[in-house]
């Protein structure tokens, strides 16, 4: 899957915006939005929030977890544990990138947040590489992957699945009678 498609899925998450215009309810196919009143916070999907922001029609309220102090705690937790800690949002990486790239002026301590999220991501990807290596090395047939986000899975998907499938084919050919045409 292309990373842009994972980002596309992340854009469905809702975020609060403070509009500077009035508009009645919008009846979208995927559900109703609004009404919009100047100064009153309203929940909208991220794709719309970013568009309104680009047209200077709203201010974005960053999600609760997008806070330097909270992220610092999460980073420490992630560094302390060997296992994957729960993440604040199943699209934390994409949302950070999207919101910081398009609405950095609405997010306090944006630069710190960028660094913290990058640190959390790097720590988790290092763990993921280790466990993928172990999984392949020990020839496991099943792994539980709670707390991993789609973007994280997606970064190892092609490489890991291709290796596993190649190993499987090689092994299948070792066992006469069980071999198949691929």
């Amino acid at each position: 899957m292309d990373p842009s498609e994972v980002e596309f899925l992340a854009e469905k998450e809702t975020v609060k915006v403070i509009p500077n215009f009035s508009l009645d309810k919008i009846y979208l196919i995927g559900g109703d939005l609004g009404p919009f009143n100047p100064g009153l916070p309203v929940d909208v999907p991220v794709w719309l929030a970013l568009n309104l922001k680009q047209r200077q029609k709203c201010r974005i309220v960053p999600p609760e977890w997008m806070d330097a102090d909270k992220l610092e705690e999460i980073r420490e937790q992630e560094r302390k544990e060997d296992a994957f800690s729960p993440v604040p949002s199943c699209h934390y990486m994409e949302l950070t990138k999207l919101l910081l790239n398009h609405a950095a002026d609405d997010i306090p301590r944006a630069d710190e947040i960028r660094t913290l999220v990058k640190d959390i991501w790097d720590t988790r990807i290092a763990k993921l590489r280790l466990s993928a290596d172990r999984f392949v090395g020990q020839q496991e047939a099943h792994a539980r992957l709670d707390n991993l986000t789609l973007m994280e899975i997606n970064t190892t998907r092609d490489f890991l699945l291709d290796s596993l499938n190649s190993m499987h084919k090689l092994r299948a050919n070792l066992q006469p009678g069980k071999s198949q045409d691929y």
Binding site: F21, L23, D24, I26, L28, I29, G30, L33, W47, L48, N51, K57
Partner: peptide
Amino acid sequence: DLKASVHHMEI
């Protein structure tokens, strides 16, 4: 129209 543009994006 603002509303219409939101609908177009969703479509």
